[in-house]
Each structure stands twice: as structure tokens, then as C-alpha cells.
């Protein structure tokens, strides 16, 4: 059995607060190949973000571990860059400086100053944000902020790109536009991507595989759907594509029939 690029092995997560402890994740096993786009989908509060944070190294699993490219993950690092749900740009830095901060930390030694400058611009070009280089986050729209967040994450040249509900806070039109951008960039760069989402259409449209989590507590992987749609994918053409509809139906069934949100679940 050969090792996969990213392996999540027997991950358990229990949060303990004083006397109370709650088991959030149980026995999570997932193998991701290089260049794969994986979506993690599940109801709110089931622990999707916890999985992502463990892969990022921001949280330490109570049991099991994560292996990326043959090395165990035990702290955060630029090889697993994260695009946060609320963009997390530093408000006192301009668009350029936000990306530059990451590039300087990651490539401060390996690239010259001119090379770093070109690299920053190249990544901002990739997300079409070169027109607002010297604007601060407060001066650009939510969609633009998320583009810069994506540029910052890509600029670290990660082995795995982690997207934590990247389009969750955006309106439907902006979201669709950004999804198209992410697909275009994915074809160009062939990144390995792990994306958290609660939107079934988004998951089917973007992913190679959809990993579905059962409801917490003690959430685990309930099922995995492969999405064998060729790329590039066009959202309009897919509307009545049988494979697309089949995948969408499978995901919806899992979420709303087999693992419907418990009545007590919080928004």
C-alpha cells in the first residue's frame, strides 16, 4: 500500500474545558492524492473546521495524526496555507503589503527582493487584484478581500491549500464569480486543496471528491462521493448534466435524509 500525499489517520479530537469534555471527531481517516480538490461537507457544528485546523496545525489532535508528503504535521506552517472564512487580512496593511508580509516570511531567504516583488504581483494578478495594490482592506469589497486572502495563501506555494468556507460570507453572485476563479486557478496550478463548505452545489462544482461528515458529537466520515466531471467545468452547462445531478442528489440525500441536522443543532 503506497502512502498518499496527504494522509489523515485515525484523528480523534476531544475538547476539555474544566470538568466537561466533548468528543468532537472520532476516527477520521482520509487519503488525498497530489492535485486533488477535496470538499469537506457537513452540518454546522459537526467539526468540519476542526478537521481543517488539525491539518493546518492550528489545533493538535487528541489522537491520531496528519502526514503531509511523508512528514508529520505538528505545527502550523506555510506549506499548509489557509484561506480564512472572514479573509483575515491585516487592516493596517495595503493589499500589496498583506501578501508581501507572507512572501517575506516564507521566501525572505530563498528569493531576492526583486523576485519577491514579482512573485507578489504575479499572485495578485492571478486573482485579478492588481488594480487595488495600495488600497487597504477597508476600502475594498468583501469579494475582493477574499481574493487577496486567496492570493496570500497561494503566494506561500503551499503543498496543501486549505479553504475554510472561503465564500460563506459572500453574496451569491460574487460567490459564483469567485468559484469560477478558483476553478481556473486550480487548472493552472494543480494544487492539492481541502475546502470546507456547507453548500452542496459548491462542493459538486469544485471538487474531485466530496467527503461528508456525520453529525457531531463524535463526527466521522460518513461517505465519500467521487465527482467524475471533466474540467474545465461550466456551471451553466452542468445544470442538467446527469453526473452532476447524480452527485448532487447523493450529497443532498446524505445531508438531509441519512444525517439530517439534529433538532437541537445550533445555526
Amino acid at each position: 500500500m503506497t502512502a498518499s500525499y496527504l494522509q489523515i489517520e485515525n484523528v480523534d479530537m476531544t475538547f476539555t474545558k474544566g470538568q466537561k469534555s466533548s468528543n468532537v471527531l472520532r476516527n477520521i481517516n482520509l487519503k488525498v492524492e497530489r492535485g486533488e480538490f477535496i470538499s469537506l461537507i457537513g452540518h454546522s457544528g459537526c467539526g468540519k473546521s476542526t478537521v481543517l485546523n488539525i491539518v493546518a496545525g492550528l489545533l493538535k489532535a487528541s489522537g491520531g495524526g496528519v502526514i503531509l508528503d511523508g512528514k508529520e504535521v505538528n505545527e502550523p506552517g506555510p506549506d499548509r496555507s489557509v484561506v480564512f472564512q472572514n479573509h483575515s487580512l491585516l487592516p493596517w496593511l495595503t493589499v500589496y503589503e498583506n501578501v508581501a508580509l507572507a512572501v517575506e516570511e516564507v521566501f525572505g531567504r530563498s528569493k531576492s527582493k526583486a523576485e519577491r516583488h514579482d512573485w507578489i504581483l504575479k499572485n495578485l494578478e492571478l486573482v485579478h487584484m492588481t488594480h487595488a495594490l495600495h488600497k487597504r482592506p477597508a476600502e475594498i469589497s468583501g469579494g475582493m478581500k477574499q481574493r487577496v486572502g486567496i492570493a496570500r495563501a497561494l503566494a506561500m506555494e503551499p503543498k496543501v491549500l486549505l479553504l475554510d468556507e472561503p465564500f460563506g460570507a459572500l453574496d451569491a453572485l460574487t460567490r459564483a464569480k469567485l468559484q469560477d476563479e478558483v476553478m481556473r486557478i486550480q487548472i493552472e496550478l494543480q494544487n492539492t486543496v481541502l475546502m470546507i463548505t456547507h453548500d452542496v452545489d459548491e462542493a459538486v462544482l469544485l471538487s474531485d471528491r466530496i467527503v461528508m461528515l456525520t453529525n457531531g458529537p463524535s463526527a466521522t466520515i460518513g461517505d465519500i462521493i467521487s465527482v467524475p466531471l471533466p474540467r474545465p467545468r461550466m456551471r451553466v452547462e452542468l445544470v442538467d448534466d446527469p453526473i452532476y445531478l447524480q452527485c448532487r442528489a447523493a450529497a443532498l440525500k446524505f445531508l438531509y435524509e441519512r444525517h439530517a441536522a439534529p433538532a437541537t443543532a445550533m445555526g
Binding site: L58, P76, P78, V82, F84, L90, L101, E105
Partner: peptide, 17 residues
Amino acid sequence: PEDYRNVARVIRLKGVR
């Protein structure tokens, strides 16, 4: 904000910087 701390941790910004 926790987000800023997380950004710093991901790019390994530590200490004086």
C-alpha cells in the same frame, strides 16, 4: 483577534517580528 494570530502562526511570524 484570533484570526491575526492564526495568520501569524501559518506564516511562522514569531518573536520580535
